[in-house]
Design a protein around this nucleic acid. Sequence first.
RNA 1: GGGUAGGUGGCAGAGCGGCUAUGCGCGGGACUGCAGAUCCCGUUUUAUUGGGGUUCGAAUCCCCACCUACCCUCCA
Length: 449
Amino acid sequence: MKIYDTLSLTLKELEGNNGKKLKMFVCGPTVYDKPHLGHAKTNIFFDVLAKFLRFKGFRVFYLMNVTDIDDKIISRANEEGRGWNDVVNTYSSSFFEIMKRLRVDSINYYAFATDYINEIIDQISRLQHKGLAYETNDGVYFSVRGFSDYGKLSHQSIDSLISGARISINENKKDPLDFALWKKRKPGEPYWDSPWGQGRPGWHIEDTAITESIFGPQYDIHGGGADLIFPHHESEIAQMEGVSGKVPMVNYWIHTGHLNVENVKMSKSLKNFVSPEDLLKRFWPEAIRIYLLSMQYRNPANYSEKGLIDGQIIAEKISLLKHRVKKYEPSVSDNSIQIINNIISPLENDMNTQEALVLINDFLKESLSIRDKSDKINGEINYVLNTIDEIFGIVHDAPLPDGAVDLILSARNEARKKGDFGTADEIRKKLGELGIRIEDSTEGSFLWW
RNA sequence: GGGUAGGUGGCAGAGCGGCUAUGCGCGGGACUGCAGAUCCCGUUUUAUUGGGGUUCGAAUCCCCACCUACCCUCCA
């Protein structure tokens, strides 16, 4: 497949021989607040990418870090008058909970920064020995002038980065772009012991310490939001390639475009964010996924409520079809495989999820238009839906207790036979309030949800 | 000032040299005890920011202009 690489600014071929291992790392959350829909956009995209790569036969190890020590966490703890650990527990649980509800379940391992303090210290020490880091009275800094490739990911020279910079002058730093590897302890702050005294790690170093200890100095895919290109990912390259001397640190840099609200980036500070938690009260997780996957992953997108409504409509169509065929044994056949290959083919071209969604829609239209299909065809449809769900996670199929469906239907049909439509309609209305739809047709009544 | 992406029908959003998606909305019809859902038809005959150019042929390639978002501070 082809995937766009930020470093080379080109579509790069990602060769796929069966069973090949892929090491994939995506920047996870800083757990100082609840996630917003922009986080969901990025995480759902990489979730689908990982699932698609696995479907293709790659053995993907998907690693995500969790930043659990940071200025924002400390200030949040002070604001709320509780320990930073408490803040971390609250918001990491919140993140995991939301991701689970959004069906983001492809991540193999979450690495918490504070579990890698030794590795971080070790990496900083090695940078220092190589002359790429220096100690000041408030911390240890990376010297960007010592790494000639600094700027290669964001396609900027060090000088042009400085000329447009809005960063405040820090007397301690040799160069304005030098960034903190280790921050020395201030009163009241959490700290760990280190060769430079008590303190805590900088932001960029935690990722390279984690990936080096789990993947080694080189790996395949590194993803994240576009806003992380500079300085975060740029600095990761400087640290890792600086320490190891091995280039490139990663083969594919994949970045997602931001979710905007009325053409302005969704962010906590602007208070223009939409919370997945609130959205989940009104929309199915599958609707949110469909909506987010209807966007080109690396273009900026504008949030629209209407898009979510569209997503919900499609999610319900898929669910309707699933409930029609779920009693048929999923059947693998040339036909079902051909349908699947057709649907996923656009993903080969830089993860064109929008086009895949169009093809899914064609499949839905085709499959929903004829009711009296053979058992074999229904089984094939069921198999296709299972595969679509495996890759995209968009088939809504929450279970009802065994026998509940038959009980409801027989009670209502009893009333209808007697001409008691008042009761029949009342049941339908109440079910609707519970999110369960009922469909009467010449072939009998049918429940779906 | 520098970097990276874009500007397509009422709206959302694809296509990236010829076949002019898709969804929503709107209008009509089929089916139904009624409703919803579903299905069919129409809305789509220059919809492709403006102006040049290349080509037999451009939304798609090139040039110029205008406009937008993001990044160069923490940020997915």
